[in-house]
Write a protein that binds this DNA or RNA. Structure first.
Lengths: 252, 252
DNA sequence: CGTGATCTTGAATACGGTCAACGGTAGTGG
DNA sequence: CCACTACCGTTGACCGTATTCAAGATCACG
């Protein structure tokens, strides 16, 4: 990082977590300090690996440090619904702290680094710092708000509008933690994954992407999404960023 | 109630709340006691009234005491998506405690009695009783789990499977608070509402209902849903009640 | 350079939507 | 008590979005 200092994997993980939490709330110095005291175990996984499985009983949460993960559930006949994408700083299974039996799975969508945090540590942390409990609670509430936004897309938006909405969401979410900007953000997932999130077939995802590109709304280059016409995307998808609960919503 | 004692509207409201919370967690006597100390304002509304509106900034939560309410959001061209149904004991906008600006609306779906609880009172309550904070947090997490179940239906289930799944969910949810049993539960909403929850047109809701009745899976009589073949409904919709977070899952 | 995954395209099909009309029913007011 | 009204449920005909199936092209990685 050009800082002339070796940063351990654990320190890096907690830095990523703090950056994320500060994108949705403000932390006191004591709270930041307390967070850096968390004990974590860092692991690197290849794409397509399950981190936690449906029906598992968990004793730790997983923090995404690098790469993307997703929550999903399978039905018969190979049907899969992805419920959320998770990027560095997110804790996809934070809820397992209060509902340890999983009702869905969490998996890597790309090669990813994840840090495991024991429930025990998190429980001590929030008992000692009620402010942090509120931040984590708030974080799960934002997850819920994102679920609702996706429901609206799944139920009532056209495939075209829905995809446009998702791209708006991903761009802002990534920018909030410093992983996007200048109209560009990484999109390191396959069209199948995109379809499983949008409730579409991979074939239709491909066709809708072609329309979005054809209308000069976006473009794609080697797994990066370029927002070519933000105002149009926002208008078409009726996108309102309020639900993301981001502290600062500046710049493009 | 045949108890030879007058029960005030406020007492009744809190009783309904306690019954609901006990369906998803166990409360200590002190916690129950503390809950009964909440100050509430009770109101009765006709069907189709907004209780809180998208973009409102709130200072209180609303507890459903009687009747059904729902959370929803509108898009252009009259499109509406209902995100959840709320029955007596539910607090549809509990999240507003930590996210006071609404990203959706809450409305009555039937004539309903609701009790308003100031954020201030709830905040004092959970500060004094961390156990209750955990119960409320858990309640918002269960809401999230229900959102995911609906997403799976919206994205990957057929209309037929999706509706069957919803009926299984509603039946168990109502039974858990004593409002259903013996294979019957109230279903006091219109086919339009059902469609807006399932992401379907009212016309298609009507047709799917006919198939469900034709296959002797359910029947409908004056706003009550009769489950005629529970095992078949569960099998068809791949229903697994785990996500509802109910403490006891006994009997039919 | 080879191989499996991913992306792309076309053709046929199905699921659910839209539009329009009609019927039933509960509530209202004369 | 009946007529009127508004809302809800029901039905039919037609249409459109998205799926399925199948094949071929391209890409990424070992």
């Amino acid at each position: 990082m050009g800082q002339g200092r070796v940063v351990s994997a654990a320190e890096q993980s907690l830095g990523v977590l703090i950056r994320k939490l500060e994108s949705i709330a403000s932390l006191s110095p004591q709270e930041r300090q307390a967070l850096t005291g968390l004990s974590v175990t860092v692991r690197t996984l290849s794409a397509g690996q399950d981190i936690v499985r449906d029906a598992d009983r968990t004793t730790q949460c997983c923090l995404v440090v690098q790469g993307w993960t997703g929550r999903y559930k399978l039905l018969t006949r190979g049907r899969r619904q992805i419920f959320s994408f998770h990027v560095p700083g997110d804790i996809p299974d934070l809820e397992s702290l209060f509902r340890p039996v999983m009702d869905h799975s969490v998996a890597t969508l790309t090669k990813a680094t994840v840090a495991f945090i024991p429930h025990e540590s998190l429980r001590e942390l929030i008992a000692a710092h009620p402010g942090l409990a509120a931040v984590f609670w708030r974080s799960t509430l934002i997850d819920g708000a994102v679920f609702r936004a996706w429901m609206l897309g799944l139920g009532r938006r056209s495939a075209f509008e829905h995809m446009a909405h998702l791209f708006c969401e991903l761009y802002l979410k990534l920018r909030a933690v410093g992983l996007a900007g200048d109209g560009r953000c990484p999109l390191p997932i396959t069209q199948v994954d995109l379809g499983d999130a949008l409730g579409l077939s991979n074939v239709h995802v491909n066709r809708v992407l072609q329309v979005l590109r054809g209308q000069k709304l976006i473009s794609l280059h080697s797994s990066t999404l370029v927002i070519e016409d933000w105002p149009a995307l926002v208008r078409i998808s009726e996108f309102d960023p309020e639900y993301l609960g981001l502290e600062k919503l500046v710049a493009t």
